[in-house]
């Protein structure tokens, strides 16, 4: 096979391969840090208050739909002044509040929320309005 304008053709192929395989070599030598969720220190809250470790809805559902729930809560509270949330799972009443309900148990934004959000490069706009909790910097060795 004879190439015409071989230099340009080969350059084009190299550029194509470099672009197409970019994520492969971009990640070489980078630590594969998975989200590391720490429920401590305040997860015990739930046990004290409700008798068992439970979220407002089942864990699997919360994991997938929490943003929908929070968005709905935001609208209900801010627009309708409605703060009561009845869990469809357990029938327990909850206070619709990010900081006074969710974060009572999931007390650390850094060790809970940010773990997955940073991993997925998601920037929820909760903290555009809420004041982000100040957290003690962990001593770094």
């Amino acid at each position: 096979m004879r190439l015409y304008n071989g230099g340009l053709i080969i350059t084009g192929i190299v550029v194509f391969l470099a672009l197409a395989t970019f994520p492969f070599y971009y990640n070489i030598g980078k630590a594969n840090a998975k989200p590391d969720i720490k429920l401590e220190p305040a997860i015990k809250m739930s046990e004290e208050r409700y008798g068992k470790k439970q979220c407002v809805e089942p864990k699997e559902w919360i994991r997938r739909e929490h943003m929908v729930l929070l968005n709905h809560w935001r609208d209900a509270v801010v627009r309708d002044e409605n703060r009561g949330y009845l869990s469809t799972d357990t029938g327990t009443r909850f206070n619709m509040s990010l900081q006074n309900e969710c974060m009572q148990c999931h007390s650390s934004k850094k060790n809970f929320c940010d773990q997955c959000h940073n991993y997925m490069a998601v920037k929820p706009f909760c903290w555009d309005c809420h004041i982000a909790p100040t957290e003690k910097e962990e001593a770094r060795s």
């Binding site: 096979m1 004879r2 190439l3 015409y4 304008n5 071989g6 053709i9 084009g12 192929i13 194509f16 391969l17 197409a20 395989t21």
Partner: peptide, 18 residues
């Protein structure tokens, strides 16, 4: 398949004289 196929196509085009 994608990488090899595209490279093959480019080489094939490149071997056609204009």
């Amino acid at each position: 398949t994608f990488l090899a196929g595209v490279v093959f196509r480019i080489l094939k085009w490149g071997s056609s004289p204009v």
